[in-house]
Design a protein around this nucleic acid. Structure first.
Lengths: 370, 370
DNA sequence: GCGCGTGCGGTAAGCGCTTACCAAACGGGA
DNA sequence: TCCCGTTTGGTAAGCGCTTACCGCACGCGC
């Protein structure tokens, strides 16, 4: 009776069966469209369902049908830096990219009547596996952003549940979906070297163990050194995919009296955003003094001054593809071990030194409306 | 055997019991810390669990314990406008605010070992209730952004499951958490009127049925007319909380030859972003010719040129509070009918006509680092 | 007119857990 | 030494669904 006064005692399939004067099997069959029940039976069931506001319990259905229609998505957040302006700062700044991916996943998932169970883990939370494991058994499959779980744990878990990663190599038991990091960075590097003639470069890193970060850095450095240009490097160039991280790198560099390279390629747009900001604060002109580029092409990249030159990833499509692969793995354990690479594309805007575009940015639909 | 070759056959509690040589009850007790099992029993169970990599199934546990440890979160997306640049445009632009709220919810939820089941519904999808209902039975409670579900449906559903809304009035059976829309708008209006001396105003609306939108508009208009200033209005001022929506409003207005008011208060930051952009395209100076303000204070507001004057909501706290209320409703049906209003604060930046700040924006932690 | 095929509804057996209840074993006081 | 209180482990009964299986009623062909 503790429960009664508060309500929240949803009707069960037994209630429906009783009200409709049929058996629970008939109710279930009507609701799931099995076996083609008699119109009369069907009518009475639907009537009772409407009357009671019955909605089948997800847990019971999942247990019985061995299908939860839920997939788990784990994303990595930059560690929370506690400052006097609040504890959420790094995070707030770095929200966009993973969330856009998730949106892509969700769009695809909705078409299959799946829902997303999301979970963030702190970048340097090394007890994260507990959280991820728990999530795993609440879901039919897992999508892991960035590098989460060591190879051992990944392998272990993928034995029990289908897993798609959004970075890193596919394994025997997992699949992977990725943007073409190397191709994008190569195009970017060539543009900076050949079209702009820059000769000194740096790469502002993302999380040290992120496969995307490693791939981007590798391709960029290779291209730069292959062209005989100078690649500046060092631990000072360690960022964390967040705007605050980018700012921090520049501030430290300058405070330590380092000279800046002519062009800085950032691991992602968020970092670039912080870099542009920090340079602006010091009166350093972008791209006049230093060119800055990003990676991802998140929406704000277009609203920055100068507009950010970057490598566009098909963000939503990455998510949607990840879901579809996972879905097929859930349906029939096949298809694991697949490694999908989606194309990326260099987007030349102003921050690399290109002249401002005159064309209307894509998201302005004005002229189509009239 | 169809299943065998693909793997994915997780061990059950029976397997653990067999390997450990105990009963399933003992396994369960060890795992859940009930009853204080003998060290020997405990040891053997833990050993078997490790060996098998056993993780209890969420659905089974939920069914038995009548607790899913999952809460559903429903957010509203602007309708997808199909343009030649892709189908996700409006959405992409408007991502920030609800996602930040969700992050706040999640931070709070993790402390209680809860996960978030997220679901987006299209703004004018009127079959949305099906999706929401389905989500409801996969969760222990629901948090609804904006206005979702009519009062009738809301009431009906809240009979079966605890619900917290993030806009709109609390009802007998639901609770609500909100920012102080009226207070924020009032401060904003007074600032524009008294400090800047503007005399003509408009309010660029959000979704027509959004309670936040209504509250903001009401407070703003009241303050403006109370001061004897002019409040321009009309169906042309209908936006949709997205940047693209803001752009569209300005473009149409100008195309139709309307004169613009001296100041435009937008329903949220995203809309303001689009407005600032559209005005910039036409060579109209912000704030010189037209002042523009937002609402929410999402992170990008600070990176805009000019930096956006807006009303700050305690975004993450809104989410965290919503979760805590919901959590207490789940624990014991009490506490529904609560209506929490969190304070908002006017943030004066440049887009209202105030001089650029010289202080370092909050998210720049540089000087604290050295 | 009878036998059998077909199509529907009902009964009951799980799905993988938690936990109430019972049995057994052990320790201590009389 | 016996009895009872105290622990701890096991057995089994659900949690709310899905579905295999069975039985019944009908319709057809002979």
């Amino acid at each position: 009776m503790d429960q009664v006064d508060t309500g929240h005692i949803p009707p069960t399939i037994y209630d429906v069966a009783r009200v409709a004067g049929v058996s629970i099997a008939s109710v279930s069959r009507v609701l799931n469209g099995r076996r083609n029940p008699l119109p009369d039976t069907r009518e009475r069931v639907l009537q009772a369902v409407a009357e009671l506001g019955f909605i089948p319990d997800g847990a019971a259905r999942a247990l019985s049908a061995r299908l939860k229609e839920v997939i788990g998505v784990v994303i990595r957040r930059p560690s929370v830096t506690v400052t006097d302006a609040g504890v959420f700062e790094d995070e707030e700044e770095s929200l966009q990219f993973p969330d856009l991916i998730n949106r892509g996943i969700e769009v695809a998932a909705q078409r299959r009547d799946y829902n997303l169970l999301v979970c963030s883990v702190d970048v340097d939370d090394h007890d994260d596996s507990r959280r991820i494991f728990a999530l795993a058994r609440k879901s039919d499959g897992l999508i892991l952003h960035d590098q989460l779980l060591g190879p051992g744990q990944l392998d272990r878990l993928s034995q029990q549940i289908p897993i798609v990663t959004l970075a890193g190599p596919a394994t025997r038991s997992t699949s992977n979906v990725d943007g073409d990091n190397a191709g994008g960075m190569r195009d970017l590097a060539r543009h900076l070297i050949q079209d702009h003639g820059y000769r000194t470069f740096a790469y502002l890193r993302g999380h040290a163990d992120s496969p995307n970060n490693l791939a981007r850095r590798g391709a960029f450095e290779a291209e730069v050194t292959a062209a005989g240009a100078t690649f500046v490097d060092g631990p000072q160039w360690q960022g964390n995919y967040s705007a605050a991280g980018g700012t921090r790198v520049i501030d430290r560099l300058l405070a330590d009296g380092h000279a800046l390279p002519r062009a800085i390629a950032c691991a992602n747009d968020q970092s670039a955003l912080g870099v542009v900001y920090a340079l602006g604060q010091r009166g350093i002109d972008v791209p006049g003094d230093v060119a800055v580029t990003g990676f991802d092409d998140i929406p704000v990249a277009r609203h920055l001054r100068p507009q950010l030159t970057t490598v566009r990833q098909p963000i939503q499509e990455l998510g949607a593809t990840a879901f579809e692969i996972l879905y097929s793995m859930i349906g029939n354990g096949e298809a694991s071990g697949r490694d999908i690479v989606l194309p990326t594309r260099l987007i030349r805007r102003e921050s690399c030194g290109c002249p401002p575009e005159k064309t209307t940015p894509a998201w302005r639909p004005a002229q189509r409306e009239m």
